[in-house]
Structures are given as C-alpha cells and as structure tokens.
Design a binder for these strands. Structure first.
Length: 136
DNA sequence: CGTTTGACTACGC
DNA sequence: CGCGTAGCCAAAC
C-alpha cells in the first residue's frame, strides 16, 4: 500500500482531506483513498480494495488536538462502520445528527443529499490530489 | 518477534 | 437485499 517511509505523510494527507469536509456532509473511506495518488509500485488490487482500510487506520490515529471531523467519514454503503450499538457508533451518529445528517431505518444516509463531492479544484491542484470517485 | 486485528470494499451467492 | 470472503498490509498486542 504505502511504504513505511510514506506512512506518516499518508496519514497527514488523510487528515488534511477530512478537514475539508463541510458541516453536514459526509465522505467515505474509499472516496478519500481515491484522492490520494498511489505509490508507483502499488498493485491495482491494492489500490482498489485495500487502500480504504489505511484511511481507517489513519483516522484511528487522528490527533486529538487538531479537531478533525472524523465522524464525517462513513463506509461506502452509507452506514457507520463501527459495530452497531457500540459507544463509538452512537457517538458518531449523534455528532452527524447534530449537523443535520439523517439516517433511514436501516441506518444509512442519503448520499444524494449529504454526500461530499470533494474539495475545490484549486485545492486538489495545490495538494497534488486526484479528483475523488463519486459516492454511491 | 509471531499472531491477531482491522473506523473497507467489491463481488459472488 | 443480506451475508461471507478475499485482499495478502500495517498496527497493535
């Protein structure tokens, strides 16, 4: 995925991107991964199916002091990825609902309404990022 | 050190 | 639609 020397910068890139998600909008692990240019030696299968896990890993290591809106990142199905009923899942849902994000009966959000389309073009250029893959 | 785990996702039943 | 699994990697134990 990302080589050890790049791990830290990969994490920081993830945090920077998450910082751009506006209040009331959500992104997905995969969508964020899609914005980060892959290492040259990265296999296509790794890029498509494994990268999102490292976004999750990066989020788990989110620094407390930077007030990064970690709760605005959910999975590709539009649901919270923490185990249902866990304290973490409840926290995330509460934070999102506080911002006006609604969940349906099956615990999913409507990407058409609250999905993020990625940062402005200028931001992508400035940080050498790729255009994000659209959310389902 | 060797094992287990994981804030994922696409795909096949 | 729901559920299981491969992917084959780093962190966390």
């Amino acid at each position: 995925m990302f080589n050890p020397p790049n791990a830290q910068s990969f994490f920081e890139t993830v945090w920077d991107i998450v910082l751009q998600i506006p209040v009331g909008k959500v992104s997905s692990y995969g969508q964020i991964a899609s914005m980060i240019p892959p290492d040259a030696d990265m296999a296509p299968t790794q890029l498509r199916r494994l990268a999102p896990r490292w976004v999750g890993t990066a989020l788990r290591k989110t620094p407390r002091g930077k007030s990064i809106p970690w709760h605005r990142v959910i999975n590709s199905r539009g649901a919270i990825s923490f185990p249902a009923g866990s304290a973490q899942a409840e926290d995330q849902r509460r934070l999102l609902e506080m911002e006006g994000v609604r969940f349906d009966a099956s615990g999913k959000v409507n990407f058409a309404r609250v999905g993020w389309n990625g940062p402005p073009e200028a931001y992508l250029r400035r940080h050498s990022l790729l255009p994000p893959r659209p959310l389902n």
